Simulated assay, not measured.
Amino acid sequence: MKKALLTSTLLLFISLSFSQGNGATKYGIRAGINISNMDFDPAPTERNLHRNGFHFGGFAEFSLSEKLWLNTELLWSAEGAKDENWRANYLSLPVQLKFLVGDRLSLGVGPQIGVKTWKSSDAFDTLNFSGVAGIQYQIFGDYFIEVRGVYGFTNMLDDTLAPLEAKQFVIQASIGIKI
């Protein structure tokens, strides 16, 4: 049931991303670093639960009004923990409402669904549902920097590892260009 709900949510946001509001659309690419941390319950001992990684991908922004945009992305992201057994990489689809709060500054918030693309073990569930919030600043022209937080709502681990659960928090720092 959980996977059906997540899949339905993904399809809803994809279909929303193709509605073009007042017609203004911007596309671009982004890349940056991740700092991820896994929070286990109950907490395992002697594990490095932190991992530095990277992400890259593309995006499309659709104008809904002068100050409101719908941002959809497709990102590949290296996440999990430093320990080889707790690494996981995801193909993520964040969907954010972006609010322009100045000429160069915007705030974004929304859901994200991730699909596991690589595993070092069978420990990780295939889907990961998260919330995303960030702040973006246009450096000059079409170049920007962005910092965002991604908080996992779902247990990252497969049900076979119950009662062990893990949720993840990722900080992403990006640079990108709108083309």
Rank of each mutant, 00 (worst) to 15 (best):
M1R: 03
K3Q: 11
K3Y: 05
A4W: 10
L5H: 08
L6C: 00
T7S: 12
T7E: 05
L11S: 03
L11T: 08
I14S: 15
S15R: 03
S17V: 08
S17W: 10
F18T: 12
S19M: 13
Q20H: 06
Q20S: 07
G21I: 02
G23N: 09
A24L: 11
K26D: 15
Y27L: 05
I29Y: 10
A31P: 09
M38A: 04
D39M: 05
D39S: 07
F40D: 06
D41R: 04
P42S: 01
P44D: 01
T45G: 11
E46A: 12
R47I: 12
N52M: 09
G53W: 04
H55M: 11
G57C: 09
G58Y: 01
G58E: 04
F59S: 03
E61Y: 00
F62M: 10
L64G: 04
L64T: 08
S65Q: 07
S65F: 07
E66H: 03
K67Q: 13
K67G: 11
L68G: 01
W69Q: 01
W69A: 00
E73Q: 12
L74M: 15
A78R: 09
E79P: 09
G80R: 05
G80Y: 04
K82H: 12
D83L: 01
D83R: 06
R87K: 15
A88T: 15
V95Y: 12
L97V: 13
F99R: 01
L100M: 11
L100F: 02
G102Y: 10
G102L: 07
R104N: 09
L105P: 06
S106E: 11
S106W: 08
S106R: 06
G110R: 00
I113A: 06
G114M: 09
K116P: 13
S120G: 15
D122Y: 00
A123N: 14
A123P: 07
A123T: 11
F124Y: 15
D125E: 13
D125K: 14
D125M: 05
T126Q: 11
L127V: 12
L127Y: 15
N128V: 01
S130M: 06
G131H: 00
G131N: 04
A133K: 07
I135R: 02
I135Q: 04
Q136E: 13
Q138R: 15
I139H: 07
F140Y: 13
Y143M: 15
Y143C: 14
F144N: 02
I145Y: 02
E146H: 07
E146V: 03
V147A: 14
G149C: 08
G149W: 06
V150R: 03
G152I: 09
F153I: 01
T154Q: 01
T154M: 01
N155I: 08
N155A: 11
N155D: 14
M156I: 12
L157E: 12
D158E: 10
D158H: 10
D158V: 00
D158T: 00
D158N: 15
L161R: 01
A162I: 05
P163L: 10
L164C: 04
E165N: 02
A166N: 10
F169G: 13
V170E: 03
I175V: 15
G176Q: 06
I177R: 13
I179A: 07
